[in-house]
Design a protein around this nucleic acid. Structure first.
Lengths: 149, 149
DNA sequence: CTCATTACTTGTGAAACGCAAGTGAGCATG
DNA sequence: CATGCTCACTTGCGTTTCACAAGTAATGAG
C-alpha cells in the first residue's frame, strides 16, 4: 500500500509560507498566467510562448501544479496526442494574487504590458470577475463535448 | 566607470514576471513578512525565528532585497555590532500581495494563524492601512535619531 | 585583557535548474 | 501498414543554487 499523499510537511503553519511553498518558484505562476490571461492549454503553447521554460522544468511544474490541485489535465478528445490543461477553481482563485503582483511591479519597476496594468488599476474587482467569467464559460463549453471518462 | 546597475535583463517585460524574478523564491517574502508583521529588524531575529533559513541564504536574500530597494540596512547607533534592517516604501507596498497570498492559501490549504486570516478577511484595506501606519510610525521614530544616509 | 554576541563568510555535499538530445504514442498520407 | 510528422514528455549531463556545519571579524561588556 503506497502512500499516495505522503503528508505536506510544511516548514511552518503560516499561510504565507504555504503559498510560497506551492507558488514560490520562477515558473509556476507564469504557467498559471498563460492559462488565465492568454488562454493557453497545451504543453507546446507553454513551451513556445513565454519566457522560454525548459522542457523538463515545464513537465515538473505541470506535475506539481496538478498535484496541488491548481490545474487538471485531460486528453483532447479530438487528438489523442494532445493534453489539455485547465485551471481548477483553486487555480482561478490566484487571480487576485497575480493582480497585486502586477500592480506592485508596475509601481516600482520598469515593465511592459501597460494595457493590462491600466485595466487592473482601473478596476481590480472587475478584472478578477472577468477572468472568472471567461473561465466559467470555458468550463461549460468543454463539458458539452462529452468527456465523461 | 564600473556599471552600478548592469541592466536588469529580464526574461520578459511582463509585470508578473518582474515580480516573480524579484520575489519568486522560498525566502524573500518570509523575511518581508517578519519585518512587516512581526517587527523583526536584525539578522539574528530572522535566523532564530521563522522557518529556519540557513545563514548564507539569509545573507544572500538580505543583499538581494537591498539591491532591489525593498529593504535598507543601517547600523544600530546604540550597538555597533547590530544592523537594523528596515522596509522601504517599496517593501511596504508588498502588503497587498502578501494579504492575497494569505487569503488564497487560507481558502485552499490547511494553515494556521487563523487570527491573521480573519483580520485580513474582515477588512483587507484596513489591514493594509494598519501595516502602513505602524511602518510610518517607525520611520518617524527612527528619523529622530539622525539617519540622513 | 578575556569572553560573549552579532553579522556575516567559507567549505562541502545535495538538490534543483537549464540545455540538448532522445523516446514513444498518436494521427496523416500513400 | 510503412513512413513521416506532431505532441508530450524523458534522459544525460554540466552548472548553479541550496542547505548544513563550521569558522571569522568587529563590537561591546566586564
Amino acid at each position: 500500500m503506497p502512500k499516495i499523499n505522503p503528508a505536506p510537511k510544511r516548514r511552518s503553519g503560516c499561510p504565507l509560507n504555504a503559498s510560497i511553498e506551492i507558488l514560490g518558484d520562477r515558473w509556476s505562476l507564469l504557467i498559471v498566467r498563460d492559462m488565465m490571461l492568454r488562454n493557453f492549454h497545451s504543453y507546446k503553447q507553454f513551451l513556445e510562448s513565454h519566457e522560454r521554460i525548459a522542457t523538463n522544468i515545464l513537465a515538473d511544474r505541470l506535475r506539481d501544479l496538478e498535484k496541488h490541485g491548481i490545474i487538471t489535465p485531460q486528453r483532447d478528445p479530438e487528438d489523442g496526442r494532445k493534453v489539455i490543461y485547465r485551471l481548477t477553481a483553486k487555480g482561478i482563485d490566484l487571480a487576485p494574487v497575480m493582480a497585486e503582483m502586477v500592480l506592485w511591479s508596475a509601481s516600482h519597476e520598469d515593465v511592459g504590458n501597460q494595457e493590462l496594468v491600466r485595466q487592473i488599476r482601473a478596476d481590480k474587482t472587475k478584472f478578477v470577475a472577468g477572468v472568472r467569467q471567461r473561465w466559467a464559460a470555458q468550463q461549460t463549453k468543454s463539458s458539452t463535448n462529452g468527456n465523461s471518462k
